[in-house]
Amino acid sequence: MTRSAIGAFSSSIKIDVLIPAIEKDLGTLPYVIDSIRKQVKHPIGKIMVVSPPSKRIQALCRRKNCVFINEKSVLPITKKDIRYQTKRANRSGWLLQQLLKLAGGNLTGQRYYLVMDADTILIRPHVFLVNGKTVFYCRNWSRPEYFRTYKKLLGTKPTAKRSFVAHYMLFDKSKLSQLKSKMEARHKTRWYWAIIKKTNKQSYAGFSEFETYGNFVKAHYPGQMVVRSSLNKSLSSKPGSLTRKQIIRLARKYRSLSFHKRRWYIRKKG
């Protein structure tokens, strides 16, 4: 493990990357992929884009040398099985994307895989394993419903003081398998059905895959994690409108930029 002049570590541990996406993400997805290759300081095996059938996303994957994966091949359930409708919007697809992230271990032969949201671009070097410990990038606020669902699923209150919802996370398949086994043993059903059943369908955001996994690791492996501030910035502009000079300036204060176009869409429709 080495440290560069700017203070970022690099790691020799190879990881794969998973990005759940839909066609609305095409405005940001190419930049997300490029930023992973530039800023993730691990050898990267394959970058997998998990999506509904889409010729446009498949074409992007060919251009960017990524692996396209039809989301229907990842889990034995689809969006129609979830039935998550609030007063504001249908959230079935939103929850399905989180389940796809948790199912990503079935798609990789590596022990670790990085999940990236399709609207978040890394602008500083990132490493996710330091001296055998997983690095979690965290923020200071979350949604109470995430913690209520965690307690329903696992029977204990989460103990982390900060939120793990930071738009990207490295998963250790061994620890993730233990999390799923605990949910299945407690609820006598497959882990994804447990999550679907225990998520409050009246809540706009009733479950978080990142909050759940992060708090599970904190509870069972507190000595195997490193916590750093996510330093994420949400922007209303398009990623292509940012100049190199602007990105360099933003990188002095932030690690990543998020462009939440889908949220704007939901607000307009609501």
Rank of each mutant, 00 (worst) to 15 (best):
K87Q: 05
L122I: 11
N90V: 02
G132F: 02
A118L: 11
W94A: 07
N106M: 13
I82Y: 01
L107S: 10
F136S: 03
I82F: 01
V130Y: 12
Q110C: 15
L114W: 12
G104D: 09
P125W: 10
F128A: 04
C138S: 09
G104N: 03
L102G: 04
P125V: 07
D117Q: 13
Y113S: 11
Q110P: 14
Y84M: 02
G93S: 01
R139S: 08
V130S: 14
Y113F: 15
T120H: 05
G132D: 03
D117I: 03
L100K: 10
Q110R: 14
T108S: 15
V130E: 08
L95F: 02
D119T: 12
A118C: 14
Y113C: 10
L99A: 09
L96A: 04
K101F: 10
I82A: 01
Q110W: 08
L95G: 00
R91F: 05
L107F: 10
G132W: 02
L99H: 07
T120F: 13
M116C: 15
D119P: 14
T134V: 09
T86D: 01
I82R: 00
K87P: 02
L102Y: 08
K133V: 09
V135C: 03
L122M: 12
I123F: 12
D119V: 09
R83Y: 02
L96E: 05
R124F: 11
G109W: 07
R139K: 07
N140W: 06
L114V: 12
V135T: 12
Q110F: 14
H126M: 14
A118Y: 09
G105Y: 11
I121W: 02
F128Y: 13
K133W: 06
P125D: 13
K101H: 06
G109H: 13
V135M: 06
P125N: 15
M116G: 15
Q110I: 08
G93T: 00
L100G: 15
F136Y: 07
V135G: 00
I82V: 01
R139N: 07
T86A: 04
L102A: 08
W94F: 09
I121Q: 01
L107Q: 11
L114P: 14
Y112G: 08
T86K: 01
K133L: 06
L107I: 02
K133A: 12
N90P: 00
C138F: 05
T134G: 14
A103N: 04
G109T: 14
F128K: 11
G93C: 01
I123K: 13
G104S: 11
K133Y: 08
K87I: 02
R91C: 10
C138M: 05
V115T: 14
L129E: 04
P125C: 11
N131L: 08
F128V: 06
A89K: 05
A103K: 00
L114C: 14
V115G: 15
R88K: 06
Y113L: 04
F136Q: 06
D117H: 03
K133P: 13
W94K: 04
L114N: 12
